[in-house]
């Protein structure tokens, strides 16, 4: 068997997942639509006053982002688990954490990145000040990969279960709380025209830690689920 470089492994797993997602566009579009609908519900529920909406916007946008990330999480490993390719990845001589990293990156590209791109539109819907737009996009840009990493741990733990979906949200949502706190506080601070670099730095630090530690946790969880 020809040896492949780690980069080849990463890119082939990554491109396979991204291609699969683009073949089934609903996987990309549905979380976005869900995001949009959740955001539409809030003005209907709490009233359309622009000031009130602008005050609540960071929280609403981020809670909607958390929930729509949860929608796609189950997909990361479910299909590969069902058709057996997950077992092949585990049995292959390459480090599982690397292919896991590729899968999580593919998941982020297909669910997190569209949210980042659409974020300005959502911010406008919520009457967020123009100066907070940059912070919204930046926090989503740093925060959504973090959500994918943490969420993938939950997905890997529950992939072997028949009804893993609700259980996974129970496991993952408490772990999302720090991301939510720092991201919303960064947007809040920026809408008051203050410097929000500190919150972004903490989010970045959490992303760096997750990048290193989460693939290890995910791969050991996958080994438990598959065995």
């Amino acid at each position: 068997m020809a040896q492949h470089s780690y980069w080849q492994l990463f890119s082939s797993v990554y491109s396979k997942d991204v291609t699969l997602a683009f073949r089934q566009r609903s996987e990309i579009v549905n979380p976005l639509l869900f995001f949009l609908i959740v955001i539409t519900l809030f003005p209907l529920a709490i009233g359309p006053e622009p000031a009130l909406l602008a005050r609540m916007a960071p929280g609403i946008i981020w809670v909607a982002a958390l929930l729509s990330t949860m929608l796609g999480l189950d997909k990361i490993f479910r299909d590969d688990f069902n058709d057996g390719s997950l077992e092949q990845l585990i049995a292959s001589p390459y480090p599982l954490s690397l292919s896991v990293l590729a899968k999580v990156s593919a998941h982020w590209t297909t669910t997190g990145l569209p949210m980042v791109i659409m974020a300005p539109v959502f911010a406008l819907l919520m009457n967020l000040e123009a100066q907070a737009l940059g912070a919204t996009v930046l926090t989503l840009l740093i925060g959504t990969p973090l959500l994918s990493f943490i969420g993938a741990i939950g997905a890997a733990l529950t992939v072997g279960l028949q009804k893993g979906g609700i259980l996974m949200s129970l496991l993952v949502l408490p772990l999302y709380i720090p991301v939510l706190i720092f991201a919303t506080s960064a947007i809040d601070t920026s809408s008051m025209a203050l410097a929000y670099g500190g919150q972004l730095a903490i989010l970045g630090a959490m992303l760096a830690i997750a990048c290193v530690c989460a693939p290890i946790a995910i791969s050991s969880a996958l080994k438990v689920s598959v065995s």
């Binding site: 741990i153 733990l157 529950t158 072997g160 279960l161 009804k163 893993g164 259980l167 129970l170 496991l171 949502l173 408490p174 946790a217 050991s220 969880a221 438990v224 689920s225 065995s227």
Partner: peptide, 26 residues
């Protein structure tokens, strides 16, 4: 919530061996 997560993950598995390992990871 974290305690509940560990407990419900453990009880969700049929096979108690992998249940224990999964709960440990969590």
């Amino acid at each position: 919530f974290l305690y509940f997560g560990v407990l419900s993950l453990y009880h969700a598995f049929e096979d108690k061996k992998s249940a224990g390992r999964a709960a440990c990871i969590l």
